[in-house]
């Protein structure tokens, strides 16, 4: 029996399939290793940023600073990491810990994460601009090598996406600790009544988000080869859209790692699709908004059909 929940879960994959099919139809030449690789290049950093956002959304918060954070990581990596690896690693570690501390602050003072992460976005950007007042720096060689690695048969971005989605799925959706993280979003009171610490849970989820943010920044740098504090400004909105497209919800601890990755892929693909459609780049961003709206509208239709319990 296919219930509506399965329909909703299938929606992101359906959307990706439709966009893919449409792209191939319009430009058959993309149906190649080279074509796919090119179109989905930036999917890896976007997917990683989306996963980071997903961890935050799982505990009923929102991160408006992930974009600038990704840019900051790139700046740190293109300078510090390159020239003094030990210091660079320490700096990146500090970034991850900082994310955890923000989670602690938000929980202890019961703060709205929107406002806190809004302020945080300025802080990340400011540090990035301090490190690199104008775009520059160089990506470490090993990073470039990883990101330009040619996997046989299937383009790297697709493999990476499946890997990322798969690993996070295992961690969050099947592990016993992942249950606690999701429970924290579903019914924080029940979790506390059962003796779990909401503080520890929030800090853990934010720290993991910071970790994926760092991965996103590194992978992006590997692609762009030089760093710019502003390069990932759009990633904040992309990451939120990716999680929602993937079937996640803002409140209730309901997220889908595979869906989030697929959502990110869909958004990355939509841009390429529109180029092939010869739609002017002016409409690229608009189309992404339209896709978001259409998918959410479909979801609303499916949801309103669900029997009220």
């Amino acid at each position: 029996m296919i219930n509506r929940r399965h329909l909703r879960a299938a929606l992101p994959f359906l959307s990706l399939a439709i966009v893919l099919a449409a792209t191939f139809y319009v430009q058959p030449r993309t149906m190649s290793y080279f074509g796919l690789n090119l179109m989905l290049q930036y999917a890896i950093p976007i997917a990683l940023a989306t996963i980071a956002q997903m961890f935050i959304i799982t505990v009923n918060d929102l991160d408006l600073s992930i974009g600038p954070f990704v840019g900051l990581v790139g700046c740190i990596s293109a300078t510090l990491l390159l020239n003094d690896p030990l210091l660079g690693v320490l700096a990146l570690l500090a970034c991850i810990i900082a994310y955890g501390l923000v989670g602690a602050l938000i929980h202890i003072r019961n703060l709205p994460s929107i406002v806190v992460t809004l302020g945080l976005s300025f802080v990340w950007l400011g540090i990035a601009v301090l490190i690199l007042p104008s775009p520059g720096g160089k990506a470490p060689v090993w990073l470039k090598a990883i990101m330009s690695f040619q996997m046989p048969w299937v383009p790297l971005p697709i493999i990476a996406a499946i890997l990322i989605g798969g690993v996070v799925h295992l961690a969050l959706m099947t592990s016993s600790l992942g249950v606690i993280g999701r429970g924290a979003g579903g019914n924080p009171k029940a979790l506390q009544r059962a003796g779990w610490s909401m503080l520890k849970t929030k800090v853990a989820m934010f720290t993991i988000a910071g970790f994926f943010g760092v991965l996103a920044g590194l992978s992006l740098l590997g692609l762009t080869t030089s760093a710019d504090g502003h390069v990932a400004d759009r990633y904040t909105l992309y990451s939120i859209a990716g999680v929602i497209l993937g079937g996640g919800e803002f409140i209730g601890g309901r997220v889908s790692p595979m869906g989030a990755v697929v959502g990110a892929l869909t958004l990355a693909l939509a841009g390429a699709f529109l180029i092939f459609l010869k739609i002017s780049p002016d409409w690229q961003i608009g189309a992404q908004g339209a896709i978001l709206i259409i998918v959410l509208a479909m979801r609303a239709l499916i949801t309103s059909g669900e029997a009220r319990r």
Binding site: N110, L111, P112, V116, F122, V123, G126
Partner: peptide
């Protein structure tokens, strides 16, 4: 530098909301 300006703006926002605290349940 512009970087310092950005950082201070962010710190300001965070400080204000932290001092104000969140909704008391």
């Amino acid at each position: 530098s512009p970087g310092v300006r950005l950082i201070l703006t962010g710190v300001m926002i965070i400080s204000v909301i932290t001092l104000a605290g969140g909704e008391k349940t």
